[in-house]
Computed example of a mutant assay.
Amino acid sequence: MNAGVTDYDVLRVFCGPRGGYGNELGVVRNGSVVPEPDERQALAAKLGFSETVFVDDPERGVIDIYTPTLRLPFAGHPCVGTAWLLDVPELVTPAGVVGTRLDGEFSWIEARPEWAPPRTLRQYGTAAEVDALEVPPPGEWIYAWAWEDEAAGRVRARAFPGRGDGIDEDEATGAAALLLTDRLGRALNIVQGTGSQILTAPQPEGWVEVGGRVVLER
């Protein structure tokens, strides 16, 4: 696609089993065409995705991540999507080096909970309560979740960024899933938004894997 003179890909990350749903992600493969942080921020705001990634070195996996209003040192769904697109063994983010792997239909990343931005993890009694929630007013970033089947590790979740930047609800968020996995200390199968799927698993020494399906939208 083209935004002015800037080419970018659009992916959907954390798609459902049939390839639907997922959270859209913009990826500028040639980050050198938008070199300055303020230019990148302006383009991310113009594109309007929950995150846009600028690839600064496709072979080494060096990336830079922006929401419409701020730069992020790490974010989950941008890393999962970009790992799939570039097919590299790792991604280099300002937060640290993110391990990546492709396993069948799933793209996986391995990251640390302390890299994730602060999130309010708010548990509800039932999945139906989560489904019924209305978008809260801007303020804190809320990850609303409930067990669908606790024994099986199945979770229902919705994400409300609360930034007031036009993204009232994130369809799928890897960083929040990473934090929830770290808190609960177990592998999770999360259905978020209208039908996105996120898989997670704790790893040794405090790492967490987050995985999902990725589709090239355009």
Rank of each mutant, 00 (worst) to 15 (best):
R183C: 09
V88I: 07
R213N: 10
G212M: 04
V98T: 07
L47R: 02
E217V: 06
G125M: 11
V215L: 12
A151E: 14
D64C: 04
L25V: 03
F160W: 06
V92G: 07
F74P: 00
T6F: 06
L178K: 00
G206S: 12
D131T: 06
R101A: 15
I63H: 00
A159C: 10
R154W: 07
A128E: 14
E59M: 12
R183H: 03
T126R: 13
D168S: 12
Y21K: 05
A132L: 11
V210G: 01
A177G: 09
I65R: 01
D56Y: 06
N2W: 06
D9W: 13
V208E: 02
E39P: 02
A83D: 05
L184A: 07
Q41A: 14
A152G: 10
E59Q: 14
S107D: 02
L102H: 15
I198K: 00
V28W: 06
Y66T: 01
A44K: 00
E114Q: 15
V13L: 00
D87L: 12
V92D: 09
P17N: 05
G195V: 00
R119K: 15
D57A: 10
R213A: 01
G153H: 04
A175K: 01
G193E: 00
E114L: 09
P35L: 13
V97M: 06
W207C: 08
P58R: 01
G206P: 03
G19C: 10
Q123D: 04
Y66R: 01
G16M: 05
R29K: 08
M1H: 10
G212W: 01
P58C: 09
F49A: 00
L216H: 14
A132K: 04
V27D: 05
D7C: 14
P17D: 15
A132Y: 11
V88E: 07
S50V: 06
E129C: 11
R12L: 02
H77D: 12
G164L: 12
R154I: 15
R183Q: 14
R60S: 09
G195M: 12
